[in-house]
Design a protein around this nucleic acid. Sequence first.
DNA 1: GGGCATTTGTCAACCGGTTGCCATAAATTG
DNA 2: CAATTTATGGCAACCGGTTGACAAATGCCC
Lengths: 373, 373
Amino acid sequence: MRERLATVPLFVAVPHYDGAVTEPKTPDAAAPTAPAKKHARDGKSNATIYDIAKVAGVNPSTVSRALSKPGRVSAKTQKLIEDAAAELNYQVNPFARALPTGRTNTFGLIVADITNPTFFDIIRGAETTATVRDYTLVLAESAESAVTELTAARRMMATVDGLILASPRMDDDDIRALARDKPVVVINREVDGVPCVVPDVNKGISEAVRSLAANGHHKVAFVAGPPQSWMSARRWEGVQAACEWSRLEAVRLESSKPTVDGGRQVARDVRASGATAVLTYNDLLAIGLMQELQAAGMVVPDQISIVGFDDIFGADFTTPPLTTVRSPLGECGSGATTLLLDLLHGTGEPAGTLRVETELVLRGSSGRLLPAG
Amino acid sequence: MRERLATVPLFVAVPHYDGAVTEPKTPDAAAPTAPAKKHARDGKSNATIYDIAKVAGVNPSTVSRALSKPGRVSAKTQKLIEDAAAELNYQVNPFARALPTGRTNTFGLIVADITNPTFFDIIRGAETTATVRDYTLVLAESAESAVTELTAARRMMATVDGLILASPRMDDDDIRALARDKPVVVINREVDGVPCVVPDVNKGISEAVRSLAANGHHKVAFVAGPPQSWMSARRWEGVQAACEWSRLEAVRLESSKPTVDGGRQVARDVRASGATAVLTYNDLLAIGLMQELQAAGMVVPDQISIVGFDDIFGADFTTPPLTTVRSPLGECGSGATTLLLDLLHGTGEPAGTLRVETELVLRGSSGRLLPAG
DNA sequence: GGGCATTTGTCAACCGGTTGCCATAAATTG
DNA sequence: CAATTTATGGCAACCGGTTGACAAATGCCC
């Protein structure tokens, strides 16, 4: 089975072609005989530019221009046509428009996991910005799989004007291949030759580490995310650099998966490491870690400080609420959309990497280390 | 400004029509002169059924049939065409297909707030089911406004085969008007004449109330949600009924808004009510309420039990983790999608209301009431 | 008022599949 | 073996809006 076929087979039972070819469209007002009729297209939304042209007494192409090329027709005709359109309750048919032009006023956004709160704000940021500029956002999920991701991306390519990949799992080369076809913007990863939006971790991390140093910590553990995660690598680098600057010792621990569960599992290693402060690849790990440590009787932050990354929804539900390095995820989403818009409507293509700032959100899970006793 | 215009004005700076009308499509392989070229459509994805027809030596209409009407052409021709399609890396153009048929293999889903975790699972459930059946899900947000919601719905109607409204804010009549045009399914609300998916609150609530009664509680407070919320009314009814059955006293309190903040604000009233157990309209309220009560020195669940609704993401991040009445939101999303699919592909239209079960998720925030002292 | 530059509107081709209708070929039946 | 049904492929119209080319109308200047 070829991939293409995957988009086909479900049409079987669909009602057949109903374009009235030769019959005149007499709107037979009352047809109360058929009790439970199909959702007919006899609504008021089927006016076309041809209908408008007839009402306004002009050529359809003039209607088309009046409605999509401001200034191309005279003010008088414009008004004539707009009135007719209003009267007929005209709505352009997006498919008819997309067919010759190829543009759809639609952007695609692919995320690894719709239920991962990290993406919520990205989605919302992108959606908001897209809507403001009259674009529609289409969402797809890769279920954390590089293959699914690529399939989804390929499928989307046919129907969107541009694509946003949030924390993509696929190869750099695959991304570049997609970008050759249509504008693509990547969030949370840097890919050579493709416009990207990445949070600059340094500011937030150095704030976090300075805060830890000031509170008497000397050894910091970093719980890493997935090995292939670009962002995890950046964060670890940032932690190392900041620790060096503050003369703290930094150790790296691995997690099995970047979830609450993964956080629980890594608690053993954290205790064994002897670190008194932990930064984790993301908030979910931090929350799981904190739950497990507390269950083992440790007091946060008196005995150990925990700092997450992202400031996801729910990060302040914990007791104590989680200190975290916030990435402006909403900004990432809206920034990526803006980049896409620039790429499409802009003059040249200067679109490079857009960096956004991170900051420390100081809450209760980090603080002064109390002397053991 | 008419609404229609809102979809138009942004096209101004877009690159112009590039359909090579008279020129033959000579794929000039190497064009390394233009350094930063526009995203050309010279990719390999521009094969049409006409190209396939040429390669396979048949008529384009035969190609169309081979690819979308299983059995309509002979096995031999079928294979011929499929091979040609594979060779040319053919992908159907969704717009060309949608234009004559009107079907798009797309569903719309409108939620009040993308960042409200209640909707996450609904979205995912719908997305998953839609994808399995080769439908794409398009998401829109109403920003909690009935007007925005209706606008979004109307705009979507043009491009989708069906629409799902999750906890819609608009009038019953508006919903029915939409449903007259195309299949519509409503989640979390019952609208006469429109297929709906609603969690049946009774089982979950009675489990919760029985558990509270068994733990020595006598007076239960219910913190209500927005006055116009259909679901809030159902939950209050359920709580009253269950309390009557268990011979508990039930009082109703109002919240300002169904958020964490709203939960904090209602803490005063809760304490004043004298209730020893609280059910809240949703988990966010429960979490805010718990935070505020704990900040005031109360111990949960020793002095007061708290039970939420929905079991949203993060409900188990709290200390103690939140007891809650879970609605199978994923099921709601996938159920609504299935209903839509049935409506489109099914035989008759028996689609009525689909009820899904709720259940108590017993965690740490509810339990035995300790004698004061 | 004539000549030239602009506006403004029309014509027709086109985007890429879909499907009703028909002709032919093949299969079935009496 | 003729007659009829069925399977198969081709033809052409069509979905609805877009746009290059061109002609008609208008405006402007001397």
